[in-house]
Design a protein around this nucleic acid. Sequence first.
DNA 1: GACGCGTGGAA
DNA 2: TTTCCAAGCGT
Length: 399
Amino acid sequence: MAALVIRKRLENFLTAHHQRRPLMYNGKHDIREKVADMITWSQAKIKAFQKALLDWYDQEGRDLPWRQDHDPYHVMVSELMLQQTQVQTVIPYYQRFIGQFPTVQALAEADEADVLKAWEGLGYYSRAKNLQGAAKQLMADYNGEWPHTAKELQELRGIGPYTAGAIASIAFNQVEPAIDGNAFRVFARLFKIDADIAKPQSREIFDEVIRAVLPQDRPGDFNQAVMDLGSTYMSAKDPDPAHSPVAQFDQSYLDDEVLAYPVKSKKAKPVVKRYFALAIHSEAGWLLEQRPSAGLLADLWMMPLINRDELAETTLMTDEIQLAADQFAASTGLNVAFADAGVKMVKHTFTHQQWQLTILAADSEPVALNYLPAQWVNDFDRVALPTVQKKLNAALGIQ
DNA sequence: GACGCGTGGAA
DNA sequence: TTTCCAAGCGT
């Protein structure tokens, strides 16, 4: 009876997949045998696991600002901020954001520039626009009333399978898994699942496994307990599986193979890109351009950049600076004389690009700027700046 | 399904 | 210094 429930689930799952195509697992085994091998827990063992985890969570669960209540707006804001971002980084941003935009309606009606400014320094700036987009959808499509199901929540901007599961389970007590990096790691270790978690396809395996052990009465607490576990005793780099509240359920620990899980393929190294950063100053301030509304650092404000790798071949720095000046003049109408600013090169690494910025300085008349979104800026607190621009400011001794 | 999208902290 | 990671999503 015990393993039967899970077997049944598995059969449904595997049959459904088998009908689409014969899924292979690590290119070797039929996925059916592999998943069947993974879950051999009896119903009693599942209950014991749930109790061990939830008892620990009740005693040792972290006291975080967004856990003071189960307000769906609070959950949504925190979850969007926490996407690929550490808890300690998020806390001050969350506090300020809720103070500035206390309700869904307030956020929906805010200026996008203010939302972006509140996100300054947090990274992945599309999240800010997505969050406001979701607020607008809630007002327009639901009249401010929240949908309760994960399926409906996932229709909201910026809310994918993980975040939908998190909001549905935490705010609305829906029995849904919330599968983030923690959940992948925790369950990969508990069951020694060696599917590559970098591959989207692997999510289905974990989804099925987690549903088999998800308690009907406290799904939100369970999901959050898994995250707390994943950031402490079952962390990626410095785990302490021996003292984990679920140590006796952790097959990777019992077999002394903790660090072998989860399996995750590596990503490519960042590509190096070389730019001139144009530090143009006038009586009216520094010239900043607003970046395009899609792509890297979308809508944020920066000094103009000239891609050195797209300039004609030349060996002399003076020639290269002249080429950059010509290109800038051609696209903006501004004719100014640049010189190497004589400050150290600024380096900034994104997930997939490394920028090497050589700063060129120029003085200008405070002329009207008639090209794309650009302005003379004295007060840098008035616009949203990416971190790389703050590095440029520091190199130039601004503020 | 692979890739683009930020940042700061830790080892 | 380098590398990897941290509560993913949209295209």
